[in-house]
Computed example of a mutant assay.
Amino acid sequence: MASPHDHAPAGTGLDPAQMIAEARRAFFVMFGFLCLVWATQLVNWLLDGRMAMMHGIRPHDPDTLKYLLTAPFLHANWQHLEGNSGPLFVFGFLAAYRGVRKFLGLTAMLVVTSGMTVWLFQDGDTVTVGASGLVYGYLGYVVLRGLFDRNLIDSLIGLVMGASFAYVLTAAVPGTPGVSWLGHLGGLVGGLVGAWLFRDRSPGPAAVPSADGTLPVPAPAPGAKGAQASAAPASPRAALLKELDDLGL
């Protein structure tokens, strides 16, 4: 009798029911995060923007290092928040739907890489706030995660999303007025590194024993006298993984 993991998507270690549950959690996590960000901006607006000025990142100022934790929740104005909300939800959901716990660890990492890049290298006469560093981090994570996890669906999603939002990468280079390209770059690099650090480490699917308890072994290939044949793939998914291995992916 096959185990539940024989029907799980490659590289996930989860069966379909678990994946649906994780996707549901991811949706509510991102919905709650957006609600929190919008509620914070409402308070900031009522205070004429003083909240963002007081709790943003000021480069090279040790007293503002603690504001690395608050800056992603704050925005300069409503237009700033509106521009971040769509990509934040889309890429945040894609980053979280295969594991909310990994997603929370990734988010903590992006807060540090994006904020510290600003704190270390930004001009000293600025205050930086906004969730765009997280957006770039989630983008980088989603694009590379499928390759590291050898998951064909995630790879395709990453390529499509990367192509669809390629224009946002232009804000990760110098020259955009009023935009902290360093924060974007720090988040993007953090997401790329996070795709490797948080890669799936679960073992691949094992071959399913037959009724007599033996594993299926194919007949030796013609001309391979006395050679021990390797075990046959347990499923078409295993065959796909072998093809990816042969391609070096």
Rank of each mutant, 00 (worst) to 15 (best):
L185E: 08
V100Y: 00
T12I: 06
A172K: 08
F27E: 07
L152R: 09
Q18V: 10
G213Y: 15
P87I: 08
A95S: 09
L42G: 12
F121M: 06
K66P: 12
L36A: 04
M109F: 09
A172S: 06
D154N: 08
G115Y: 04
G187C: 00
G115S: 09
W38N: 10
L110W: 05
V208R: 09
L106K: 06
P174W: 10
V118G: 01
D15L: 10
L182W: 05
A195N: 13
L68Q: 10
V160E: 08
M19D: 12
G190W: 03
A227G: 14
V217E: 07
S85E: 06
G226C: 06
A17H: 12
H60F: 10
V142A: 08
A76S: 07
W119Q: 11
L69R: 02
H55R: 02
E22V: 01
T40S: 10
S202Q: 13
H7C: 13
M116G: 03
V37W: 10
W38C: 10
F103G: 00
L159W: 03
L120Q: 08
G162W: 05
V29L: 08
G115D: 04
V143H: 00
L139D: 08
D123W: 04
T214S: 07
L110K: 09
P203W: 15
V193A: 00
L47P: 03
T126K: 15
D48G: 02
E243L: 15
S180Y: 02
L88G: 04
A171N: 03
V135T: 11
G194I: 01
W45L: 11
G213D: 13
P9G: 07
A10I: 11
G130N: 02
D125P: 07
G130K: 07
I157K: 15
F73N: 09
D63V: 07
A71K: 02
H55K: 11
Y67I: 11
A131Y: 10
D154P: 09
V208T: 15
L68F: 14
L110I: 15
F121T: 14
G191P: 05
L65G: 06
M109S: 01
A52L: 01
T113Q: 13
H55T: 07
V189T: 10
L147Q: 11
L215N: 09
V37F: 12
L94R: 02
G124S: 02
